[in-house]
């Protein structure tokens, strides 16, 4: 592809789209964290009226496609008189979608905390809430970060789907520029490069969190 040159005029609209993509990603990531904790803890609950809805949420969102969910909320909900707007629909659906995968990460990491930790906490008479909050979650959190990084990258990739429900994100702007300039290769290579850069930012950020969080207490090569 030696004929590819990057046209500087392409940049301003792309950066506008980039801003929208970052907004949707940030909003959805926030929704995802809350949904992941709620869903993951809910699925571990001993009470079936908490466990059943949590399980339903996780299975439905993991069992269907992000795009199908997006279309459903965008096209079908208005038939029920619920109009939430494209932006809110995008943030909510992508957040809940990523949250359902996150919930399984939360659940798996909590179950991976050794049983002896909970027993020690019981022997010290900590309440169930204190056991979870002070003993189990801090240890589980360290194990959650690497898989959560992957889920966040998948979320970033899924933000491109909002271009199909009329939101002017990075991919949408790219499509518009392509249609008007017909410089397909340049535009899409730029898009791919921008998404790749965003992914690398996310990875670096998460690695820093992991380091800062667990450097002191986690021996090299995992827990003993």
């Amino acid at each position: 592809m030696s004929g590819v040159t990057i046209d500087l005029e392409l940049l301003p609209p792309l950066f506008k789209g980039l801003t929208v993509t970052i907004q949707i990603f940030s909003g959805a990531a926030g929704v995802a964290v809350v949904a992941a904790l709620g869903g993951g803890l809910g699925r571990l609950s001993g009470r079936c009226w908490i466990r059943a809805p949590a399980t339903c949420y996780i299975e439905v969102f993991r069992g269907t496609s992000a795009l199908v969910q997006l279309y459903w909320v965008f096209y079908v909900l208005p038939f029920f008189g619920i109009e939430i707007g494209a932006m809110a629909a995008g943030i909510l659906v992508l957040g809940l979608n990523a949250g359902s995968y996150g919930a399984e990460i939360v659940r798996g990491s909590i179950l991976a905390v050794p049983r002896g930790q909970i027993e020690a906490a019981i022997a010290l008479n900590l309440t169930p809430f204190q056991r979870m909050w002070r003993i189990v979650l801090p240890q589980a959190a360290a194990a959650m970060i690497p898989p959560a990084t992957n889920t966040l990258i998948e979320l970033l990739k899924n933000t491109s789907l909002v271009s199909l429900i009329t939101i002017a994100d990075l991919t949408f702007q790219g499509q518009i520029i392509r249609a008007s300039t017909l410089k397909s290769a340049e535009v899409f290579l730029l898009l791919l490069a921008l998404y790749l850069a965003l992914s690398m930012v996310i990875r670096t950020f998460m690695r820093r969190i992991e380091k800062r969080y667990s450097l002191s207490w986690r021996p090299v090569g995992g827990l003993t």
Partner: peptide, 8 residues
């Protein structure tokens, strides 16, 4: 097996 809290 001690069951010390590793993060403290």
């Amino acid at each position: 097996h001690f069951n010390l809290f590793p993060h403290m």
